[in-house]
Amino acid sequence: MIQTVAWMVSLFFMLVITVVFAFVALKSKEKQDYEPIKKKWYKARTFYGVTLVVLFLVITIYTLRELPYNQPVYSAGNDPTIVDVEALQFGWNISDTEFKVGEPIEFHVTSADVTHGFGIYDEELNLIAQTQAMPEYTNKVFITFDKPGTYEILCLEYCGLAHHLMIGTIEVTE
């Protein structure tokens, strides 16, 4: 799950940074001339900087390969089910709420009033996809459910006093 990976990666790098700052703080009471420190650590910075740039480039290329904005390539005879979603204060109008596992679906999401957020949650309350529900615009979510169950649609953009009550459901069966 992406959230777990994000949390683990963040935790790792945050701990590394904590260790570095703690190390420097511990070493701060010792006294040494600044010139040799500068010479040594400026050299190290070049290596560190280049490593960081390369790391960012690799992650960028890796993570930009598949974007949620891209319409999947559908096989012949396997056209997607188009579902119109209209958000409004404070509920969801969804043209179809029952789907099959493996059925490609395109949610075409808009809003009748203010900006809302269309977030799809699985039965374990994990957010699995989302887009903004904007007035005058239609954003798309491309998804194929691989597990049956009752999925919840939660509003993910603050839209007024009953924002947290904007919960819809969709059913996915085998």
């Binding site: 992406i2 959230q3 994000a6 990666v9 963040s10 992650i59 993570t63 930009l64 598949e66 974007l67 949620p68 957020g117 977030g119 994990n126 957010l127 699995i128 996809a129 989302q130 993910l156 953009e157």
Partner: peptide, 13 residues
């Protein structure tokens, strides 16, 4: 991490 589009897709807001 959150500025990564595929992560943002499930962590935005």
């Amino acid at each position: 991490v959150d500025a990564t589009i595929v992560v943002n897709h499930v962590m935005h807001n």
